[in-house]
Write a protein that binds this DNA or RNA. Structure first.
Lengths: 287, 287
DNA sequence: GTTCCGCATGAATCGATAG
DNA sequence: ACTATCGATTCATGCGGAA
């Protein structure tokens, strides 16, 4: 997939605040990112102190707001860490600050990590979920719900087997509830809309890179909040999982990353994607 | 189960701020409650405006802090509603205010509602999770982790057979805490500790009462954060689900409720518990 | 007695219409 | 303009009656 626009499928090295200035206003359809958690990657990123996290993030968020299209979405995968035995509040403060900046806190999706990090503590269990905060600029935004439908629950099998009996009766008699009125519409439908809880296992077997999140996560949001040919931005690209997901799904990617080591890993992974014809790649781009 | 202390197993009628004054300092081991959500039950309760929710809650929280033992826990089941197309921030503000009041925001458990309310909208999916905020007074508190262990092999065996098709994306309905299962089935199985994600369906089939949350939810926290003979308080008792769970598990309950209708329902349900010997009751109290 | 199947019912939200 | 009410939409669950 190529484009005449020079910053399509580009990776910029530097801090997000600076590099994002290369992008024009309202040029991005979707932002999906998992920023460095507060004090979590001290060795690689220098670490942001939890108390300063929201203040550190806001200038970047201002740039993100500028480059995002009015119908675009900003998905922020984040989870507060434990400080002195309790959950720190920097994510809560970040949400409040982003709202002051003009963002709408449209929804909070829940990523349920089916295989959470092992460990045992006396005052808490293993942390098996993270927030995927969904911000938008407007109440109306692009959302392709059909792209992420999931197989229907078991109840449908038994329900739809002997459909003819009850549904004929329903049409003749009056049913007050309004429920089940359109059961006949469900014939042949095996897909239903998902909820705001996303069940995905973390990818733990990767040796080349420490993927912050499984590729299924950006894939889900990219399918949901963008269309083929759109531009997906990750201002904290890391090893490039969001970019790879965007490329596989026929979107352009733009990435920003501070560390050269990460950029090299990301570029290698993206090159491998473009040469290796994976089944999924072929399915999207082929024929 | 009887006690010499007069306010054990009592229900107080009135607003929580007033009725809690009947209780002495540091007399409660655990608080589990699900307060009326902002503007949600306007017809039954008065309805608190979202913008005023935190301010409304704080005086009650002050009383809760007074009556709770230093090693006790306060579990708050709550979820923000959508206002003008976005999530309102009153829960975030409530957390920040509670911390100012001296509470430690120790953890946020996630209740995954397997059967969420139906509906379809252009800008969001069905809401399938609620927060169970865990506050404590001290960093050291009572936690009986062994009481809520779950069998490890339960879901793995059955699920791994036909995993390929649907289960990658579909929610793992069988995974997780294993609430409401017969403990005798667990004999001989390896037990593991759960995570901070709780999988439970809402109880919607009851016509006698509209249970705010399934009894498995308070049961889980009561097992986890209290011991037999302890005192469990619900300042927004509603139809008494928390009290019933406490009684079944051999704890004393204390309840507060504004509406007389609800108190009557709760008292009826509790009386039925005490006369009817349910299998679960027998399992705990019998032999 | 089991198993199967039908049914009512939810801490909901949006957009349009009415006052 | 701004608020209040109403209809439309949707899917998993437990219960009770039937096979």
């Amino acid at each position: 997939m190529t484009s005449d626009i020079t910053w399509h499928n580009q990776i910029f090295q530097g801090d997000a605040c600076t590099t994002l200035q290369h992008l024009p206003d309202s040029s991005i359809d979707l932002i999906v990112t998992s920023p460095p958690y507060a004090d979590q990657r001290k060795n690689t990123y220098g670490g942001v102190h939890p108390d300063e996290y929201a203040a550190w993030f806001m200038p970047i968020a201002a740039e993100l707001h500028r480059v995002l299209k009015p119908t675009g979405s900003f998905v922020l995968n984040i989870k507060e860490r434990v400080v002195a035995g309790e959950r720190h509040t920097y994510v809560l403060e970040l949400i409040l600050e982003l709202k002051k900046q003009g963002w709408l806190w449209t929804e909070e999706y829940m990523w349920h990590k089916r295989n959470s990090f092992p460990g045992k503590w006396s005052n808490r269990f293993r942390d098996a979920w993270e927030r995927c905060l969904h911000f938008t600029k407007e109440r109306q935004f692009k959302m392709n719900q059909d792209a992420v439908r999931v197989p229907v629950g078991d109840w449908a099998e038994s329900r739809l087997k002997n459909l003819s009996k009850t549904d004929k009766r329903r049409d003749e008699s009056k049913v007050g509830s309004g429920f089940g009125k359109n059961i006949s519409n469900w014939v042949g439908r095996d897909l239903v809309y998902p909820t705001n809880v996303i069940h995905l296992a973390t990818e733990c077997g990767n040796r080349n890179h420490s993927a912050a999140f499984p590729i299924g996560l950006p894939e889900w949001f990219i399918k949901l909040f963008s269309s083929p040919g759109d531009v997906v931005l990750d201002p904290f690209m890391g090893s490039g999982t969001t970019a790879i997901a965007a490329h596989r799904l026929g979107r352009y990617y733009v990435g920003t990353e501070l560390k050269l080591e990460y950029i090299e890993v990301a570029q290698q992974r993206l090159n491998a994607e473009k040469t290796d014809i994976s089944p999924l790649f072929e399915e999207i781009h082929g024929s």
